[in-house]
Nucleic acid binder design. Structure first.
Lengths: 142, 142
DNA sequence: AGTATTCCGATAAAATTAGTAGGGTATAGT
DNA sequence: ACTATACCCTACTAATTTTATCGGAATACT
């Protein structure tokens, strides 16, 4: 039961764009350096995100990527669904007409995970970072 | 985000023992046939279960496996933990001192999944099967 | 023109999962 | 004691998935 590196990268990428995309676009190279993602791998991920309409792009010098939806609209679930394409949990259906109680169990868990991820937005993630850094500052101030 | 076939097999195996182990032991061959699990793969799984103390065994003719704990004591989580050994979710910790809000998110989800699986026993799974087959019977009776 | 950057397809390497092979070991029944 | 049965164990192989890498084409800015 695992989440792929690709998904983790995709999330960090969108978060990076939300945090550093204020003034225009952000280049692949910048994201890669900050989030420690292999450049070529990141390119693929960005293309995926672009095809899904999450980000937009501008080519050529001074080019780069930017969020095409607001951080408040982009849910974590939406990103995860893009990169975690395969059937999340065993759809080991009721083989041979047999009822399998585990299938039901997995389904319930899957739904809960889905709802949780769908309830978390990139904006919320940014807020949590703010919150954390805020607390840090307080400690220093005192 | 997936659960391995091995885990699914292990769960079905324990369930099979709970359902067919009333009168002594159940052989690998029987479990394999009923649950459609490759025999040699099943052997490995049973050894894992045995080493964990979930099942016991008797060798020789008329030998086989049996539950060493009561179905009410065996939780689904206990089985899953045996076969799903690797770190469940990316412990992509706070690399370079950076705070990562996703780590926290995954942790919360992981805990919920853990609690859910830990709250479900094999006995409960058996009950659900009973319940389901009971409803079926009712339909016929009427 | 020259350069920076996104775009795209193919391929390769690594890791994990799923399954096989083949023999070893204990035990029940004869 | 012999033999058949079934557990026990280690190693290996095959398939799949994940994680990249490579090389270049398209595009846009200066």
């Amino acid at each position: 039961m695992r989440v792929s590196q690709k998904t983790e990268y995709a999330l960090k990428t969108v978060l990076d764009l939300a945090q550093h995309g204020d003034a225009g676009v952000v280049s692949t190279a910048h994201i890669a350096r900050r989030q420690e993602i292999p450049v070529k791998f990141l390119e693929q991920i960005l293309i995926t995100l672009k095809n899904a309409g999450v980000v937009g792009s501008r080519r050529g010098p001074k080019g780069g990527y930017f969020l095409q939806q607001s951080p408040a609209e982009i849910t974590v679930g939406a990103i995860v669904r893009l990169t975690e394409s395969r059937p999340a949990l065993p759809n080991n259906g009721d083989a041979a007409g047999e009822y399998c109680p585990f299938a039901e169990m997995w389904k319930e868990i899957e739904e809960h995970v889905h709802d949780t991820l769908e309830g978390l937005t990139i904006k919320e993630m940014c807020r949590r970072i703010q919150e954390r850094s805020g607390k840090k500052s307080d400690a220093y101030v005192i």
